[in-house]
Amino acid sequence: MNIDVKPKSSEVSQTAFRTAMLDPSTPAPEGLVNPDGLQAEKRFDVYRNNVAHSLATALAEGFPVLVKLLGEEFFRQMALVYLRIHPPSSQMMMHYGAAIPQFLVGFPGTVHLKYLPDVAKLELALRRAYHAGDSEAIDPVKLTALSQADLMDARLTLAPAVEILRSDFPALSIWEYNMQDGPSPVMSPEDILISRKGFDPIAQRLPMGGATFVEALLKGSTFGTALGLATSEVADFDLTITLGALFAGHAIIKIDRG
């Protein structure tokens, strides 16, 4: 084998490679050559294109409602800007795009669409729920059979998929309108419970105070404390509907009696 030592000047660092790849205005690093030993600008473009295409495609697949709201071409152009500022920080492409909600706030083409960041947050939460750890929901009877005193002292463990999203906009209605032919969204705030039923993520609207109740449970508060917080926020807090959503979403996986 031929091992002749070449000058250091032709060495291409991965920093130079990466920088030129993410910035089309930077020429390909010297030392990348075609079969004649000449600079290989267009050949380098293959890597530029592959990276941009794969990351933009991953974003489009991860935010199907944003794609519908913005249109495929606009979304793609936006993704090309995003991926250069926020290339993935991990190999876990299933979570790529976590900074999209903040990005939308500052992006000139979307800054006026105030509801978009919350729709993006919902899409991210649904993806996290899809990949969350497995768990088995309790039989609702186990909760309803408790005495009032035992219930108030109980601590509920919620499924790993459970999250709360408080939106000043009808983020879930917008999502349903685009993904499930739901009714036209009415401009009003929505508190959303995200969970997973079997293997399918679901999002449900909570009544006022419901988000406070579930967030308290997530922090490990007793049922009574969570109920007190929700009731002090909303005097006629609807516990029945909130519990119904938690049961329907297979959200409660364990009861520890105080």
């Binding site: 084998m1 031929n2 091992i3 002749d4 030592v5 070449k6 032709s10 060495e11 291409v12 030392g31 990348l32 050559v33 075609n34 079969p35 030993g37 290989a40 050949r43 380098f44 293959v46 890597y47």
Partner: peptide, 13 residues
């Protein structure tokens, strides 16, 4: 798609 001028080994080797 391209080669490195600095390479001193063939790929199979």
């Amino acid at each position: 798609y391209l080669a490195f001028a600095e390479s001193t080994w063939s790929e199979p080797d």
